[in-house]
């Protein structure tokens, strides 16, 4: 078995164990959440009898260990259960599976994250490399200043500023090409979905570019003082080629880690941007589900978030191993 494959399988196994541990934490945390679904939905008319009847129907009267095993057993088979909202008299008994609720929202979130990544990652890498190349130049300082400013300002504020400038009529454009509402759905043609998502994408790009760009710059500058770069320089290799051919391949490990972290953030941490632009993503769904105590949905979302982090970190690890022969052939 090739060493790379072995490492990947090992990491995958570890990832699964982590996920399992996380599932226990999720379940235990939600157990500790005060209030319950019946009370949240029934409000003032929640009598002890109705609440008890409800809990029985939802299976909430059984011991936690049994419920956990039922849930995790189902998840292992790809069954995330049924949303509370469609159970019993509420919703008249029409069952809504958690998957049917989460899947479209997740698709929307991945669409936004993907679009942002396509813009932000190359942009950050290029800006970072150029900043390393022209270190301490006017350009370097300007880029640093702008990106650090944009990361220091809260994202909702960036969002509102962009909205004011680009979506409100008669500020910059008389009839703005951008939309203040990013209410996308999959019936729209692709171009319209992209245009509607433009402002949230811009906001997120501004928020995550600084981190990645600074890390690229720092990693490359760090390498520029190493002996093999000096050797290359002495050979008369051009600065561009030094960075591109000699420094960058050795800098991939830290850059990949930062990119993975930021991509994970794009999936799990953008609820504020979703709220501002009313983007129907998974973050809003989870907040909604927490406030109505729709436990199966909360659990599914939390598990998806955990899996995203674990998976992206795994990929970052693999990238750093593959690009670094020293890690590939450990002595």
């Amino acid at each position: 078995m090739s060493p790379i494959l072995k490492t990947v399988l090992q990491r995958l196994g570890l990832g699964l164990i982590t996920l399992f541990a996380v599932s226990i934490i999720i379940f235990a945390t939600i157990e500790m959440l005060p209030g319950d679904f019946a009370k949240a939905i029934l409000g003032q008319s929640a009598t002890p009898d109705t609440v008890a009847a409800f809990q029985k129907r939802l299976g909430l009267d059984r011991p936690p260990v049994e419920r956990y095993l039922n849930w995790i057993g189902g998840v292992a088979q790809g069954d995330f259960g049924v949303s509370f909202a469609g159970l019993g008299g509420l919703g008249g008994g029409q069952e809504t599976t958690v998957v049917s609720l989460v899947a479209p929202r997740l698709a929307n979130t991945l669409f936004l994250a993907g679009l942002t990544a396509i813009v932000a990652v190359p942009l950050a890498l290029i800006l970072g490399m150029l900043a390393a190349l022209y270190r301490n130049s006017f350009y370097d300082r300007i880029v640093n200043m702008v990106t650090l400013t944009s990361i220091s300002v809260p994202e909702f504020f960036v969002a509102y500023i962009l909205m004011l400038l680009l979506a409100v009529p008669h500020v910059v454009f008389d009839s703005p090409p951008f939309y203040a509402l990013a209410k996308i759905n999959f019936d729209m043609p692709f171009t319209e979905r992209v245009m509607r998502s433009a402002l949230p994408v811009m906001t997120l790009v501004l928020v995550i570019v600084a981190h990645m760009m600074r890390m690229t710059r720092a990693a490359i500058i760090n390498l520029l003082s190493s002996p093999f770069i000096e050797m290359a320089r002495l050979k008369g290799v051009s600065p561009r080629r030094i960075i591109y051919r000699h420094a960058l391949p050795n800098a991939w490990a830290p850059i990949a880690t930062v990119i993975a972290l930021n991509l994970a953030y794009l999936v799990v941490g953008v609820v504020v941007v979703e709220v501002v632009f009313v983007y129907p993503g998974i973050g809003q769904l989870m907040v909604d589900a927490v406030s109505s105590r729709n436990i199966p949905v909360v659990q599914a979302c939390a598990l998806i978030f955990a899996a995203t982090y674990i998976l992206l970190n795994l990929i970052a690890d693999i990238v750093s191993i593959v690009t670094n022969p020293r890690l590939l052939h450990p002595r």
Partner: peptide, 8 residues
């Protein structure tokens, strides 16, 4: 408007 809304 909430995800728990139903046609009932």
């Amino acid at each position: 408007g909430s995800t728990t809304d139903s046609l009932d």
